[in-house]
């Protein structure tokens, strides 16, 4: 279980974005988080991805409290949580080919490719030709497919989708969400952050609505 209790987080002193928030992600379940822009959804996603240190409150990963964040957390802990960001174009190094983007976590954690790359790239519908291209040569939708494959390549136990579909068209949205649902069915705990109620109703097991 990945959980956060009584979180207080902010960027500017004295102005917390989240104040006393609790959330739990269970393996195999998808929690939807809906709310208008600027309500702190992405902030919560960043904390659960261990990328942002909360001012106070606790984060627990599979029963063990997380005390450090970003690169200070052990690689084993942070790679057990995959993240997909809102804007694929900002979330990839513009110099890398899509293939290098998808493989990056394997390279960084010195793990061998046991066929997962081929499996995932096929699932997100990226052809060999598309994988050889660089980000500026593909559309936002194609890039987000690569980002989802990257987030899943280390077989994380939890997946945080922060507005994953807000920049992509309906068809790509359906494809990405179908893949996330299949990994959730295989036991991954998913946080689906979106502002689209209709999408979350079709995607998540239960939906938390803010404000």
């Amino acid at each position: 279980m990945l959980s956060a209790t009584d979180l207080v987080v902010g960027y500017r002193r004295g102005r917390p974005v989240l104040d006393g928030v609790d959330i739990e992600l269970h393996p195999g379940a998808t929690v939807g988080l809906a709310g208008p822009s600027g309500c702190g959804k992405s902030t919560l996603a960043a904390v659960l991805a261990l990328l942002l240190e909360p001012w106070s409150g606790s984060v627990t990963l599979d029963g063990r409290p997380v005390r450090r964040f970003r690169h200070r957390v052990s690689a084993a802990e942070r790679t057990s949580i995959g993240v997909v960001f809102q804007q694929p174009r900002l979330a990839v190094d513009p110099r890398w080919t899509l293939d290098a983007v998808v493989r990056a976590p394997l390279v960084a954690s010195k793990r061998r490719d046991d066929g997962i790359v081929a499996e995932l790239t096929e699932a997100v519908g990226l052809t060999r030709e598309l994988l050889g291209r660089r980000p500026h040569e593909v559309s936002d939708g194609q890039l987000q497919r690569a980002c989802l494959a990257r987030a899943l390549v280390l077989r994380p136990r939890y997946l945080i989708c922060d507005e994953m579909t807000s920049m992509v068209d309906a068809s790509t949205t359906a494809l990405l969400v179908h893949l996330v649902r299949s990994v959730a069915a295989a036991g991954t705990g998913v946080l689906a952050v979106s502002h689209d109620d209709a999408l979350l109703d079709a995607w998540a097991d239960d939906v938390v609505r803010w404000r």
């Binding site: 990328l51 690689a75 084993a76 942070r78 790679t79 949580i81 960001f85």
Partner: peptide, 12 residues
């Protein structure tokens, strides 16, 4: 964000 993505992917 791509640095965040790399951190999350286990990069030192």
């Amino acid at each position: 964000p791509f640095v965040d993505a790399a951190i999350s992917g286990g990069a030192t």
